[in-house]
Simulated assay, not measured.
Amino acid sequence: MSFSPLWALFVLLGIALALWMTSIQWRSRGGHKGDLWAITVITVPAAVIGGRLDHLIASPGEYFGPDGDPIRAFALWDGGFGFWGALILGVLAAWALTRFQGVKLLPFLDSVAPGLILGQVAGAWGDWIDQRLTLTTVIAESVWNLIGCILLIVIAKRLRFGHGQVFALYLCFFALGRVWLEALRIGAPAAEDARMVVGLPLNVWSAIIALLIGMIWLVASRARHRTPETGVYLREARTLQRRRGRGKHDFEPVGVAPAASGDTRAGAHTDPVGGSVDGSVSVPSGEGVDENGMHSFGFFGAVTSAISIVPDVRGRSREDGRPPSAD
């Protein structure tokens, strides 16, 4: 069964909703929305590839069996994507990009989680348009995912979730919904084509594994961390250096105290709130960074920006009143 243009339209709508919500959550944690667009350029194609690989692994006979056609493995328009493969490869791509940019992965994943479950609402309606799911299933899945999106945002704020705990809760909520929603898929084309393992669809086993991973992750993380991270960037993050080099703003670690009396060297700090323990930099929204999140990729270059400038402490006068020496 091939994908219809309407299905593709709903998928694009789902991606747009996910990016919109992720942008809100990321900026609320002190990040630049420019980070999101830079990472999305890589993670979205990676998720598409991962979803296709998931389908090929789950249904190899259609492409690599005696009567299969290996060339059809590249025919994305013919349909066949797996959610868990898309999630795994997308997360791996995000890990690589955040590591390169100097962005902390866990707070980024926490920002992505509400957007992911919101975007899946549009994706479910796309499957209904292509007659892959029944209307009852789509309505139930949409309501479940909308409730999940709201709960992730509220719980994360009330309980001060961080360190990947929001993403772990997303795994639990989405996987739990996937288990009982599979019962509603009976009679739909998606259920008829499902691969069975020990009497249950493969999707159910995948959801059970994801549920266990999410529960263990959440419990272990809450045992260690009761408050969110103090910053979302690592020290000397490339993404902030790039903006400074392009004149977007002057970056200096915010919320970081000098290491010793009169020591105002960049990066010298002992304040644990500023992130001296793990080498991170706390950059609250609107302090030390471009408040509108302008980025060198130019995605929002046409939007008027309000830029917050933080003076370089090395340019200040010394404590004894004399100007700084030439060296």
Results as ranks from 00 to 15, higher is better:
115 G>W: 11
85 G>I: 03
274 G>E: 14
123 G>C: 06
322 R>S: 12
293 G>E: 15
285 S>F: 05
173 F>C: 02
215 M>A: 09
9 L>W: 14
136 T>M: 10
184 L>G: 03
57 I>C: 05
247 G>D: 10
281 V>A: 11
280 S>P: 05
29 R>C: 00
277 V>A: 00
83 F>N: 01
120 Q>F: 15
123 G>H: 10
106 L>D: 14
13 L>N: 07
63 Y>Q: 05
317 S>Q: 02
196 M>Y: 06
324 P>R: 00
211 L>Q: 03
190 A>T: 08
322 R>G: 00
309 I>P: 14
276 S>N: 13
146 L>A: 15
9 L>T: 07
103 V>D: 10
232 V>S: 06
46 A>G: 15
24 I>Y: 08
129 I>M: 04
175 A>S: 15
246 R>M: 08
11 V>C: 07
256 V>Y: 06
55 H>D: 14
199 G>Y: 12
142 S>E: 04
203 N>R: 06
34 G>P: 11
143 V>E: 01
31 G>M: 05
306 A>L: 06
261 S>M: 11
304 T>I: 06
36 L>D: 09
87 L>E: 09
269 H>K: 01
65 G>R: 00
149 C>H: 01
174 F>D: 01
261 S>Y: 11
254 V>W: 11
318 R>M: 10
214 G>E: 02
122 A>K: 03
143 V>T: 11
165 Q>N: 12
168 A>L: 05
252 E>Q: 14
119 G>W: 09
18 A>S: 14
225 H>F: 15
1 M>F: 07
141 E>G: 14
242 R>K: 11
71 I>S: 15
23 S>E: 14
9 L>Q: 07
104 K>P: 12
299 F>M: 04
206 S>Q: 11
27 R>T: 14
17 L>C: 12
133 L>E: 05
243 R>H: 08
109 L>W: 13
302 A>F: 13
90 G>Q: 03
42 I>Y: 13
139 I>C: 07
263 D>A: 09
254 V>M: 13
119 G>F: 09
163 H>R: 04
283 V>F: 02
159 L>M: 12
312 D>A: 08
315 G>K: 08
24 I>N: 02
83 F>G: 01
62 E>T: 13
37 W>P: 00
253 P>K: 10
112 V>I: 09
33 K>G: 02
281 V>S: 07
35 D>R: 04
113 A>I: 03
306 A>K: 03
59 S>R: 10
229 E>D: 10
22 T>E: 09
1 M>L: 08
183 A>H: 13
300 F>L: 10
255 G>S: 06
70 P>W: 02
176 L>E: 00
176 L>S: 08
52 R>V: 15
212 L>R: 04
239 T>A: 02
224 R>Q: 09
301 G>V: 03
106 L>I: 04
